[in-house]
Write a protein that binds this DNA or RNA. Structure first.
Length: 430
DNA sequence: TCTGGGGTCCTAGGACCC
DNA sequence: TCTGGGGTCCTAGGACCC
């Protein structure tokens, strides 16, 4: 058995955790750069505001309905997420942190020994999370991850279930499949949903009756076959335990839309250098080194100009590295290749790929000097200083921004809540 | 007229997820 | 004026090798 614990409207719930007066009013949280709506309270959903709506388009209606608006505050959400996950790690033998607000629990054998009544167990878990973090959740329990996802949706939808849906019999699973539309199945997106509906397949119950060859043909090969089997209750996706409560990534991206579009080369170098520095910090935090660094810069993707809007280049490093100065060298030369004078750029980013465990790289026999240790110490000190005095306290010259000044490329964030839980200066006071 | 075949590695792109 | 960001997995096809 798997359980999926999913936080309800997570970002909104994080904002509400510190402002109980928001509990009964409509609330939304915006994406980076205050671009679109990415989290909505039940009241905001009821008013018709959709996931991904452009803020500037729905702003009049938001104001008219007195909806409370927040810029996203990832320091807060990340910290709240850690608290939830930390608690979950204490109530199940293995957990998989699937995203910032979702976690799979391994309940294998649990119903036979520790918790014969899994609904009771899940209810207690929900109550504890709410009590400890003020975050409401729903729990879906089923024989496979895909069915646990489906159960979770049902727990959210049907109020009388009190936030817990346990699919513990073939009859219940069948019923669940019947009331689930294909587009709501985990792994069926817009493209496949349209294709399925064209073939007259509207519900999960209809989908589950198809053959594996059919799934192979119409749902992306082996991916589709697995999806079908999981719906039939056959486990294809094992739990991938998250050791020590953190996620180790195979690639690391840092990209941003600029608050103000950039038109000069030095501004672009400063922006992308800052992004690369942040990406390198993330890289070192998870103890990895990168084999390739990609740099991209983008024009306005909504303009009437024909594509392409985005231009990128990939640099393969001679030896995997996590050294900011090494990465920054490549940033400058890559940007020289990509930059076209006279263009207006709205976004840029850096992707670190081909990650491996730092310190395991093959020695570069042809390196002129072996100053790797000195470099490692420098990076460790840099990270410590930035942790102590705030991100960006110590930077490389190319990414330098004068204290107190907002860089030209900074994202917009006009409605940001304080870092209640991660900054002494911004502690919530009563 | 026929003009190997099978393997590996890499990359770009498509589909999905939250 | 304004329309996010960060991931995963899989497949097809090209380059290269023997």
């Amino acid at each position: 058995m798997f359980a999926l614990v999913d936080c309800n409207n997570f970002y909104v719930s994080c904002e509400r955790a510190f402002r109980p007066n928001l509990n009964t009013v409509p609330v939304v949280v915006l994406s980076n750069n205050d671009g679109c709506l990415i989290s909505r309270s039940a009241e905001a959903k009821a008013l018709g505001f959709g996931m991904g709506d452009a803020y500037f388009q729905v702003r009049p209606e938001l104001e008219y309905n007195n909806v409370r608006v927040f810029s996203s505050n990832y320091a807060l959400y990340g910290d709240m997420s850690r608290r939830v996950m930390h608690y979950l790690a204490s109530v199940a033998p293995n957990i998989e942190i699937y995203s910032i607000d979702e976690c799979f629990l391994d309940l294998h054998g649990m119903d036979r020994y520790l918790h014969p009544d899994l609904v009771k167990y899940a209810t207690e878990v929900r109550e504890q999370i709410l009590r400890r973090t003020k975050i409401p959740t729903c729990v879906g329990i089923a024989p496979t991850k895909t069915l646990a996802k489906l159960a979770n949706r049902i727990a959210k939808k049907i109020p009388k279930l009190n936030g817990v849906c346990y699919l513990n019999s073939p009859a219940l699973i069948q019923r669940a499949l019947e009331i689930t539309e294909v587009g709501d199945i985990w792994g069926i997106g817009q493209q496949y949903a349209n294709k399925l509906r064209e073939q007259g397949i509207k519900t999960a119950a209809q989908l589950v009756k198809q053959s594996e060859n059919w799934a192979r043909k119409f749902l992306g090969g082996v991916v589709g076959v697995r999806l079908l089997r999981e719906l039939q209750g056959k486990v294809c996706h094992q739990l991938q335990p998250s050791e020590d409560g953190t996620l180790s990534r195979q690639s690391i991206t840092y990209s941003r839309t600029f608050g103000t579009p950039l038109t000069t080369f030095p501004d672009m170098v400063a922006a992308v250098s800052a992004f690369a520095s942040r990406a390198a910090e993330k890289l070192r935090r998870q103890g990895s080194a990168a084999n390739t660094i990609s740099i991209f810069i983008s024009k306005d993707r909504f303009s009437v100009e024909p594509p392409p809007y985005s231009f990128s280049t990939v640099v393969t490093l001679p030896v995997a590295s996590s050294d900011t100065s090494e990465l920054l060298r490549h940033v400058r030369s890559a940007l020289k290749r990509l930059w076209k004078p006279g263009c207006v750029y709205k976004k840029a980013g850096v992707v670190l790929d081909g990650l491996e465990i730092a310190g395991q790289q093959q020695l570069d026999l042809f390196a002129k000097t072996n100053n790797g240790e000195v470099r490692d110490r420098l990076m460790a000190d840099l990270d410590k200083l930035n942790e102590k005095f705030g991100s960006g306290a110590v930077t490389f010259a190319s990414a330098f921004v004068k204290k107190g000044q907002r860089p030209a490329w900074d994202s917009r964030a006009d409605f940001k809540s304080p870092a209640y839980t991660t900054s002494w200066e911004q502690l919530w006071t009563i």
